[in-house]
Every structure is written in structure tokens, then in C-alpha cells.
Design a protein around this nucleic acid. Structure first.
Length: 268
DNA sequence: ATGGTTGCCAAGCAA
């Protein structure tokens, strides 16, 4: 029994629905988690997903900004739309999926980007980002005999030295500052989460999922960062078969600045 | 050191 899950910051699901359809047709993940859908719930393109074979569609969105959605080929049950930092921003959605006799709790996160200035005293957005990560301590990787957890999303932090194109040059850039990367890794370990991408690709190798729109030739300069993540509970990690980072999606027409990441498991 | 681009939605904010 195989199971696959994809995560993608889509930067407007309505604008990029054709790209989403292409991803679903070519890779057919069991579950897809989207971030930055930028659509209120009453305008979410439910029918387009159902046409693509994803009958089970759930979302937490708002006008203009943020928003997450989780779609599935298998029945899902919404567990929670959690509020963080006492804010109404739509940044979290968790669901249960039953697959291969196993119950999987899937968290879909969109962590705040944090603005430009990495000083919580003068930048409230950076303060909120740090608070958000601190609150994620309350989201542990629960597991049991037939229970596992997965956490995916745009977490907007590149924790390891080789998660950015230049560790030295990004130490004062939001997403890779020591205060972020330290609390991020502490939070992950406290929750007992396994960083699945780094189970496959050793920490010595560069690994990116995002390339800024603000470069003339993203591929030639290759100044990327690993901002998108797939974590699991320890009992699921031995079942991981592979990770696909769809780097070529950054060259699709009118692309998102993030590319899809897919994890495949053998639940046998 | 600075400015570079995109999407929302129709000015400037967020990323």
C-alpha cells in the first residue's frame, strides 16, 4: 500500500489552477496541501479539484492573503482550523485520512514570512513569526499503533546551512537568522518530528524549494532557499520511499515562486 | 548598499 502527499505554496490557487491540474495529472498524490490560496472559502474552486479526481476538498481561506487548502483522493475529516498568535489569519488546517488501515493526522501550515527587518523589537511581523513558531510547540507528532502524523507546508524558515544558497550571506536575512533557525529546530525536536527531506538528501547537499521572483534568471543564479517542509512522526519515517522536489515547476508558465514537494511512503 | 518581481485588486501592502 503506497501513499503520497504533496505540499505547494501556490500563490493564488485561482490564478494557477491550470498548474495545479498539471501537477495532479502527472503525479497523482493521494493528498495535496496548498498554501497562499488567496481565496475566501465561498470562492474556492471545489469543482475543478473534483473533476481532477480529488473529491474531498477542504480549505481555510480569506480574501487577498494567506489561506490553506487540503485536497484528497480519499475521504478526509477536518480536525481543526487553528488560530495562532491570536490572529484570524488562515494559516493552519489539520485533517485525518484513513489509509492502509492507518489513521494519519495531516497538518497543513503557512507560517508568517516575517517581513524584512529581523528585529522583533522594531518589526511586529518578525515578532509574530517568532511567536508563531513558539506556539507550534503545542503541535506534537502524535503516533500510536495505527496512528501517525504528517506536518507539511510553507514554514518560511530554512533551518540548515545548506538550505540556503549562502549561509554566510543570509545570516541576517529573515528566514535564515539564528534566532529563527534555532527556535525552529528546537520546536521540531520538541514535537518529535522527523525532517523527511533530510532523511533522503544529506545535510551536506544544497536543497531548495523556493527561488525569488526578483531575479533575472532564477535557474542560472540558483539563489534558492528550503522554505517548504515535510515532517512525520517517527513511526512513519521508516516507510518513506522517496522525496520529489519538482524544481522544473519553477520554469512553468506564470509559476509560483515555490515548487511542489512530494513524499512517497510504502505503508506495507 | 540597493533594487529587483509578483498577486491582490485597483493603492499600497505582503511576500
Amino acid at each position: 500500500m503506497s501513499f503520497s502527499i504533496a505540499t505547494w505554496n501556490i500563490n493564488s490557487v485561482r490564478l494557477r489552477m491550470p498548474l495545479v491540474e498539471q501537477l495532479l495529472a502527472e503525479h497523482a498524490p493521494d493528498v495535496l496541501c496548498l498554501q497562499e490560496t488567496k481565496v475566501p472559502d465561498n470562492l474556492f474552486p471545489i469543482k475543478a479539484f473534483q473533476k481532477a479526481g480529488y473529491e474531498h476538498v477542504t480549505f481555510s481561506g480569506q480574501k487577498g492573503y494567506h489561506g490553506v487548502a487540503t485536497v484528497s483522493r480519499h475521504p478526509l475529516e477536518v480536525v481543526e482550523r487553528r488560530r495562532f498568535c491570536d490572529s484570524d489569519d488562515c494559516r493552519h488546517l489539520s485533517v485525518h485520512v484513513e489509509i492502509g488501515g492507518r489513521r494519519i493526522l495531516i497538518h497543513n501550515f503557512y507560517v508568517p514570512a516575517g517581513g524584512d527587518e529581523p528585529d522583533p523589537e522594531i518589526n511586529p511581523k518578525f515578532r509574530q513569526k517568532l511567536d508563531f513558531v513558539a506556539e507550534m510547540h503545542d503541535v506534537p507528532a502524535v503516533e500510536g499503533d495505527n496512528l501517525s502524523s504528517i506536518l507539511v507546508g510553507d514554514l518560511n524558515i530554512a533551518p540548515l546551512e545548506n538550505d540556503v544558497w549562502s549561509h554566510r550571506q543570509l545570516l541576517k536575512v529573515v528566514s535564515h537568522t539564528p534566532i529563527e533557525t534555532t527556535s525552529f529546530e528546537a520546536m521540531r525536536r520538541a514535537g518529535n518530528w522527523v525532517d523527511l527531506m533530510r532523511q533522503i538528501v544529506p545535510p551536506e547537499e544544497k536543497l531548495y524549494t523556493w527561488w525569488s521572483y526578483r531575479s533575472k534568471d532564477w535557474e542560472a543564479s540558483d539563489r534558492g532557499r528550503r522554505l517548504d517542509h515535510i515532517w512525520s512522526s517517527p513511526n512513519l519515517a521508516p516507510h518513506l520511499q522517496g522525496i520529489d522536489i519538482l524544481r522544473h515547476a519553477r520554469s512553468w508558465e506564470r509559476p509560483s515562486d515555490h515548487v511542489p514537494v512530494i513524499a512517497k511512503f510504502d505503508l506495507g
